[in-house]
Amino acid sequence: MDNFLRSLYQERASQPSTLGIIFIEKKDHHFYLTDTFDCILLIITSETHMEFFSKHYVYDNEKIALYIFPHHRLEKWLLTGTNPQIVGWLYEGKIIFDRNDYISQLIQNLKDFPFHERKIRIGLEFAKLIKRYNEGKMLYEEGEFLDAHSQIIKSLHYLGRLALIEKGYHPEIIVWNQVKRIDPDVYKIYEELINSEEPLNKRLELLFLAIEFFIHSRTEIGVSHILEVLNEQKYWTIQQICEHPEIELYGTNIFTLVEYLIEKGYICVTLEESKGKGIFHRYYKKVTDLN
């Protein structure tokens, strides 16, 4: 097996564009890291023309996956949390090749979790939490209890991830095991949802109250990133907000978050008359005095 793996990565290791190579082997207690494969070989490159390349092999009855992707994609995954599996790959994988300590520094940065990166991640998870909570509440009010339940499960997931990030941890695939150890209060409401024998509508009522409390208690830290960005200029159009390099990471969740900020008095709306009669443009401004 070693010789076969070496044949897969040796040529790549000699290329100047290759920044690092990591080997992840299936383990009983971390089986989720390799999906259905016996091992995964990651090759990180500085090439910008390729987003993601994969190949699957079988050798000696073992399934092997080869993944090649550029460093900017890896770094975006880590910043946005859109691929929690990558955290496990970096922590549990064996470094085979590391140009200029690129991977070692990446892992150290993961462990340090710098304050600004953490603030962005908190903002992203908070925006997702608000969106799912609002959707769940609207579905509940329409009597669509099963769909409301589905949205509340998702909002709890984002609440769990948010709790971990606040305390300096990167959420991994097995989130609730992490949350149980790190934030028992958040874990408790998840446990109540799973184990409760109350009728679904009653269970949802209690969950909305609990989640609303957690949202309220985390609003200041949850919106600190976007408010920091809005400090950069006095007035914003929604397009300008969306195009900001850091805010574009929020995706469509930014629209729900902006409305939440208006509702809570963090930003105000200024209307400017357009060319069309009775039609006004909306401009957004951070409220400097919240007292």
Rank of each mutant, 00 (worst) to 15 (best):
L227G: 06
L209P: 00
K202G: 14
Q233L: 08
P171T: 02
T237S: 15
G168F: 07
I211M: 06
I174R: 13
H216S: 11
L209I: 15
E166K: 15
I215H: 08
H216D: 12
V175C: 01
E192M: 08
V175Q: 05
W176V: 01
L193W: 06
I194G: 00
S217N: 15
E197C: 04
E232L: 14
T237A: 05
P199V: 08
E191L: 10
H170Y: 15
K180Y: 13
C242W: 07
E228V: 04
R218Q: 05
L209A: 14
H225W: 11
N201M: 11
Q239C: 05
C242R: 15
Q178H: 06
Q178W: 01
I241Q: 03
R203A: 04
C242H: 12
L230S: 08
I241V: 09
L193G: 02
Q233Y: 07
I226R: 06
K167Y: 04
E228Q: 14
N177D: 14
Q240K: 11
V186P: 00
I238D: 01
E243T: 13
H216M: 08
I238C: 01
S224D: 09
S196A: 11
T237F: 10
G222H: 07
S224N: 12
E191S: 14
L230H: 02
I211T: 06
E198Y: 08
E212P: 03
H244Y: 12
E192K: 12
T219H: 09
L227F: 10
L209S: 10
R181T: 12
I241D: 01
E197Q: 13
K180Q: 14
V229M: 06
I194A: 07
Q239Y: 07
L230E: 07
H170P: 00
D185P: 01
L209T: 13
R181N: 15
L200P: 03
W236I: 06
P199L: 09
N177R: 14
N201D: 14
L204T: 03
E228N: 14
P184Y: 04
E228M: 11
E212A: 12
E192T: 02
N201C: 04
Y190E: 03
R218D: 00
K202D: 07
E172I: 02
K188V: 05
K202A: 02
Q240S: 10
V186F: 03
L230N: 05
Q233M: 11
D185N: 13
V229Y: 06
H244G: 09
F208A: 04
R218Y: 04
K234F: 08
I211K: 00
S196M: 06
L204A: 03
H244V: 13
E228A: 13
S196K: 06
Q239R: 14
F213M: 11
R181D: 13
D185C: 00
P184F: 08
Y235H: 09
C242V: 14
I215G: 03
K234G: 01
V179I: 11
E166S: 12
K167F: 03
G222E: 00
W236K: 04
S224M: 02
Q178T: 02
G222A: 05
I215A: 06
E212G: 15
S217R: 14
V179Q: 00
W236V: 03
E243I: 06
D183H: 11
E197G: 12
Q239F: 07
W176A: 03
I165T: 09
G222F: 03
V229H: 05
C242A: 14
I165M: 08
W176M: 12
Q233K: 15
L200C: 10
Q240N: 11
G168A: 12
D183V: 10
V223F: 04
